[in-house]
Simulated scan of single mutants.
Amino acid sequence: MSEGYNIYICGVGGQGIIKTSVIIGEAAMNEGLDVTMSEIHGMSQREGSVSTELRIGDFKSSIIPRNAADALLSFEPIETIRGIDKANKNTKIVFNTFPIHPSSINSSNMNYPEVDEIISYLKEDFNYVFPIDGNELAIKAGNILSVNMVLLGAIVADDKFPLSKETIIESMKNNLNPKFHELNLKAIEYGFNAVND
């Protein structure tokens, strides 16, 4: 990996975004790579926006410049749109299609956009868009709470992702409760296959 790799990860509070970022960051260090990370916490109790910026390589700043992300990993459709200024036409955009309706929409006359419209919008301007129903795959793996591992597996399937799946799995095992390892392994595989297929 000569030029580095930038991953912008976003979603809403409670989806495991920070833990996913920590797993990727630790895996990078275990492969001997430099990594910097910054995080922004929204109001997690109110399902506020949460994002992290991970830069693998010799970077001086932890902030990904506009249009410079190699990958955008989003846990929620609207949050994908919020983070799109980090992407360029060749960014791998992997996102969970299951919407979480924020209280601001629920308590107003605004409508949550149709997910199909979001997908069409993204595919018009970006070359690599991978929408997956992470919630459905997490349930299939055995627990809805493994949705972050589904999405982790999905981003690992990017052919330019700089870390091996084996290193990611090792890092997952170091960071999550052993009694959930089998479940999380299934979730990673489901996410990986959803994009790889």
Rank of each mutant, 00 (worst) to 15 (best):
I9V: 14
I78W: 04
L176S: 11
P178A: 07
N177V: 07
K186H: 06
S171A: 11
S21L: 05
P99T: 11
N175M: 10
E53S: 12
E3D: 10
F180T: 13
N6K: 08
P131W: 00
H181K: 07
L176P: 00
D116W: 01
P113C: 05
S107D: 04
H181W: 15
E124K: 14
E117C: 13
L72C: 01
S108M: 05
F130N: 00
R66C: 01
E3V: 14
A194Y: 01
A194N: 01
M1D: 10
I100C: 05
D58Q: 15
G134F: 11
N67P: 00
Y112H: 03
S120E: 13
S44D: 10
P77H: 07
N184C: 11
V35H: 08
E31G: 01
S171T: 06
D133G: 01
K140T: 12
N175K: 12
S171D: 02
S120K: 15
C10Q: 06
L122Q: 06
L137K: 15
Y8P: 00
I40M: 15
M43S: 07
D85G: 07
M149P: 13
L152D: 06
H41F: 15
G13H: 11
F59V: 02
K92T: 08
I7C: 07
T91W: 02
N6R: 07
S104A: 14
M37W: 04
S104R: 14
E136D: 10
S38L: 13
I139Y: 05
S104G: 08
N143H: 09
G134P: 03
S49T: 15
V50Y: 02
Y128L: 12
S108R: 13
V129Y: 05
K89S: 15
H41T: 12
R46V: 02
N175I: 02
N109Q: 09
S107H: 07
R82T: 04
E47R: 12
K123N: 07
I7S: 01
V94H: 01
G32C: 00
F180A: 03
N175S: 09
M172K: 13
I132Y: 00
S171M: 08
L33H: 03
K89M: 14
R46I: 06
I56Y: 03
Y121K: 15
V50C: 13
V22E: 13
P99L: 03
I132G: 02
G134H: 06
T91H: 00
A138R: 14
E136G: 04
I18M: 11
G142M: 02
D116G: 07
N193Q: 15
F75W: 05
I24S: 07
Y112V: 12
R46W: 01
S103T: 15
R66I: 15
G48R: 03
K160F: 09
H101A: 11
S107F: 13
G142R: 03
M1H: 13
L183P: 08
I188Y: 03
Y121M: 12
R82E: 09
S62D: 13
T52H: 09
I78Q: 10
D116S: 14
Y121V: 11
I23C: 03
K173D: 10
N135R: 13
A194Q: 03
V12K: 05
K89H: 11
A87D: 00
K123F: 05
F59C: 02
A157D: 06
S44W: 06
S51E: 09
R46L: 02
G32N: 01
S62G: 10
L54K: 10
Q45F: 02
